[in-house]
Write a protein that binds this DNA or RNA. Structure first.
Lengths: 335, 335
DNA sequence: GCATACGATGCACACGTTAACAAGAACTGA
DNA sequence: TCAGTTCTTGTTAACGTGTGCATCGTATGC
């Protein structure tokens, strides 16, 4: 492997001069820089980042951690977050991806020497210990999707509650009164936020929310199917169901249909997330869109800002949600 | 930050002894090891991997590269591959994720010092230059999804062609004669493999494949929708369509329905991939399942084997595909 | 009791880079 | 011409580890 010392020898200067030239130091005159750069290129020199890391105490790595990868994180969500983060990280840092629950609480390998900064896509309050750990190690931190208070970090939040509120009001506006909810994974903050939006809308319009109308799911298709079966056992049947995720909604539609019910003829269904397939199922899903790619991007930008300023920036970024009206919600059937 | 020298001072030994003790060297008696480990734990020492990397010439990083992230890689595919790879990488290495097309041909930051090994989920032959680059840098390499010949590397391949062959024979077995194909992204090897399976099955049964029955898509929902519209303009109409991806298939079903056709009453549709949602759309999709999680896992295992043996292992691992019969394929309508 | 072997430990250097400081050369102003 | 300044470059020591070789003490074998 070719090092700056080899280049130094070729150029007839000291390795210090080479280092400075390649780092574009103002101490070196332009001509010398040129010459050294050319030599470096001609022997196709690539810097050893391990050595740089050691002396600069920077790793050139940014971590992106999800609460879990195989238990409750939907593919689209994962994909979009990574895409968003990578779009700003690009070649300035390497992006290390992992799941928090894979550590089993032993975060030993997460050190300030290994990570210049960390983005946590936080879905569950079980992340609390990880977030606190990172914070205590003084690693610059950005948290997406869950309020990171009281820790002063970059925090990117979508207004789920408002989105759900609008969606449920949309159902109410279509004449529905008996509206059930298929909740997300228990313990996930997003589940709670969305439920709050539902409850607030129902309360505002003086509508009842009986216990059997509230069923917990797991954000995946299967639990949507199962949860819907539970709801379909209720008497009286709800005329509309708000689902805390699109996958839940698609599972629920499946269950409704296999019970001989038409969507939205007999029962209306609304989802949350606007997954890639949501416009393409039949009927196309009315849902709440959350700009996940942007959230990943904003978190990465915030983190990089913090890194550039060499201090922990405190910043809360809110992104809006948007109601997407499609076909899965219809007027309430007349009794 | 606490270093082995600090521990050495506390233990009254040299840093050499500490280094050996913490690395479980046979040169150090058990008692001393114990004592040093305890001291290390009590001051919660974490090794500086940058320093280790420098002296050991190992980075403790494994790269996982996709051809692209936002142009043709489906979420499920991405998610499952990462999950599979991480399940074996775990805490032995950090997993760096990136897209090859984000480099724009300048692979400078991909150095042997930064990556102990690299997994390429290769979808397009545009990856060729990257794969060759990695190979020339002598970085241990595993290639998934595309034949890496003539390079002797770990190569994980699924038998797409055989799977498609079975699927198309399934259509033929249901009485279909006019069978169209919605192809995947042009230039992707997987698109070609799947088409070959289709062509082979059609040829074996002496069935005609007119040019208009072959439409190229992009592996996503929208291109499935658009491609299907093209097919529905054919005269005579195909009675069945094989789609090279499940997302294509769902888009196609949508297009069929919005033309007033029932699936599978009027037209049958088969897909490929067995995405998470494929069982939950209506009608549930008949498709070919490919064990993507396993492929990620096998590639990572192969790579780690190569790393352990400190040499490039040559190995081709084939994983089978499986036909999943559901509801979207029915008997050919009688003319 | 002596030579030999071996077990435990430390010294010193290496890995490739950056940076504080020193030092020589060239230039400035009188 | 000379002192002071600026520009250019080199010397040297870090950063935190791992390791070849040397050293010292103790056990072993006769």
């Amino acid at each position: 492997m070719v090092t700056i010392k080899d280049i130094a020898k070729l150029a007839g200067v000291s390795h210090t001069t080479v280092s400075r030239a390649l780092n574009d130091s103002p101490l070196i005159p332009e001509g010398t820089k040129q010459r050294i750069r050319e030599i470096a290129a001609s022997v196709n020199y690539t810097p050893n980042f391990n050595a740089k890391s050691l002396v600069l105490a920077r790793s050139f790595h940014v971590g992106l951690f999800f609460s879990t990868l195989d238990k409750g994180t939907t593919s689209g969500f994962f994909h979009e977050t990574v895409t968003g983060a990578l779009s700003v990280i690009k070649d300035r840092y390497h992006l290390i991806v992992n799941a928090i629950d894979s550590y089993g609480g032993a975060y030993g390998s997460v050190t300030p020497q290994s990570f210049d900064g960390i983005i946590v896509m936080s879905q569950s309050h079980a992340d609390e210990s990880f977030i606190r750990y990172v914070w205590e190690k003084r690693i610059p931190l950005a948290v997406i999707n869950r309020r990171a208070e009281p820790l002063p970090v970059v925090n990117v939040l979508s207004d789920d509650e408002a989105g759900v509120f609008r969606a449920v009001e949309h159902l109410i506006g279509a004449g529905h009164r008996r509206i059930a909810i298929l909740e997300g994974k228990t313990g996930f903050q997003s589940s709670q936020n969305r439920k709050n939006g539902y409850l607030r809308a129902m309360a505002k319009h003086g509508l009842d929310v009986p216990q059997p109308y509230q069923v917990a799911g797991d954000f995946d298709l299967e639990s949507g199917y199962i949860g819907m079966q539970q709801l379909l056992a209720c008497d009286p049947l709800p005329t509309a169901v708000f689902c805390s995720g699109d996958e839940l909604a698609v599972g629920a539609m499946k269950a409704a249909r296999s019970r001989g019910l038409s969507v939205p003829g007999d029962i209306s269904i609304a989802g949350f997330d606007d997954n890639a397939f949501s416009a393409f199922v039949s009927p196309a899903l009315t849902t709440v869109k959350r700009p996940v790619v942007s959230m990943g991007r904003l978190a990465a930008e915030g983190l990089l800002r913090a890194l550039a300023e060499r201090r922990q920036t405190v910043e809360t970024i809110r992104v809006p949600t948007e109601l997407i009206v499609r076909e899965s919600v219809g007027p309430a059937p007349t009794p």
